[in-house]
Design a protein around this nucleic acid. Sequence first.
DNA 1: ATGTAGACTTCGGTCGACC
DNA 2: AGGTCGACCGAAGTCTACA
Lengths: 295, 295
Amino acid sequence: MEKIGCTIHRIRIEKGLTQKEVYGKIVSRSFASRFEKGANDIGASKLFLILDNLAISADELRYIQQNYQPSPLEQALLTVMKAYAAQNFPAISQWIQEHSHSPHAYDKLVSSYASILLLAYDHSSIGITTTTRPIYLHLQQAKMWTIQELKLVNILVPIVATTKGLSALHPLTERMVANCLHYQTKWGDPFNVLNNLVEFYGTLLQTYLNFHDYQAARQLKSKITALNSHNLNWDGRLAQQFWIGIWELYFGDWTLGNELLDEVTALEKRHKPRIDNTLFAIRKLRTQAAKTYRQ
Amino acid sequence: MEKIGCTIHRIRIEKGLTQKEVYGKIVSRSFASRFEKGANDIGASKLFLILDNLAISADELRYIQQNYQPSPLEQALLTVMKAYAAQNFPAISQWIQEHSHSPHAYDKLVSSYASILLLAYDHSSIGITTTTRPIYLHLQQAKMWTIQELKLVNILVPIVATTKGLSALHPLTERMVANCLHYQTKWGDPFNVLNNLVEFYGTLLQTYLNFHDYQAARQLKSKITALNSHNLNWDGRLAQQFWIGIWELYFGDWTLGNELLDEVTALEKRHKPRIDNTLFAIRKLRTQAAKTYRQ
DNA sequence: ATGTAGACTTCGGTCGACC
DNA sequence: AGGTCGACCGAAGTCTACA
């Protein structure tokens, strides 16, 4: 693996910056030279200051340093998430098997995450196992969630509803909202956590409908529309529009609902294979169910 | 500012992980303890390994450590970008003024970026100044671009076309493509640089049309469609659809073009105030120009 | 499983000078 | 502007042991 200093050297040269500009008053001139040669490591807090001067993020530095590859953790997560998106559950099982005795600590974490994905897929047959229990409990108990938790919590919703009842969803929702708020700045939503919140509301809506708690479902619209669309990207805005569309089918203007949904599915239809096939399945299912409900 | 170790301690506790799990064979047990107390800094490469075990990115760690705020560099960039998005050019000028004698090295970089934004707005009156020349030259000479450059290069297109002629756009395009390729992994596009590439092609299309180089413009469609939409997010896919729509107005199926554009603008119309007002302006302008061209 | 403390070593980091 | 060398210091980091 290339030393951090060498990577920084390359970037600095390409950017046409001098050592003085980049290292300023952070480290001495002679150390800067030895550091860029790869002879020394550097203190983390100093590195962060240097990265600011280089106008590069810590994540990108790592990515470049590792020969333009995501971190091992990212790689593991992306592999699992990709299998999940493709509904390839055997591949997830296999991944867990292969990494069950990994020397890397983060593989245990990813295994937990992967187990939850399997759990979400078919919690009746798999149930909460010893692998999934720690992270299942953690997600319920921890006050502070990081991006990883925010990404995962929405697949936990149906599981919580089944095992602890619908009432357990209220505190979960509150924590989700509170934690997403932590990641809002006056410049917007740098980590795009609001997209996860939209998806969370979507899963919540589906769950309430599945359990026939129509009153709770009805109250969700105001929460979904309350999200300022200017702080979302188009991924979030389309999800927002989709779930409002579904809501309208049940509780609002049937025509408007179909308009909203048409606009979203029209975009999907432009892409082969589909970006997200589940949208069509959900719409079909909900259209039928909404008709029944309205009678 | 809270010490890095203290932040990591909080995150570790919240995640319910033991020191052994997180620090493994990276540092000794006793050092881990002192580090989390904030008594010591830590080597950068060791920190990265620890972050993997914590399942958190370096960027997020920094964000949390700084009390849930982006890095100073990010803050500066976001401020300028926001002003640009709002077409608030006086605010950008003012920002450059206020930070022209900043002690922070990165403020010079952001000033360069901001100057280019102004340049892109009205290069006839402002011209290439001493502030903008370094970065203007840099973007043309550097082989390696980081995310920052990839974000900025598309606003440079019209400037390059005016000052160096349309032929200069070919090598620029090649470098743009090559650099975006660096950021593609087998798991997709982790930094979403392909969105920048779509926007680049859009600017390119506009520029060719403005300069009446219809042959070059006609060849752009294959490049835009060549981008696999599955590696884009919806921001990118919508931009892709929009620019293909514009292309169709000139060189392809007029009806199809309007269909594509209608789908995109229909989404825009759902949001007040508009997410991106320029879409409507561009469409209006191009519809007229395309009619003329077709005659 | 973690905090503390002392003794100890390594290496991150400075300074000055020379090229 | 930046690479290098030697001398030097303090902080990073280990080990052992006790709590």
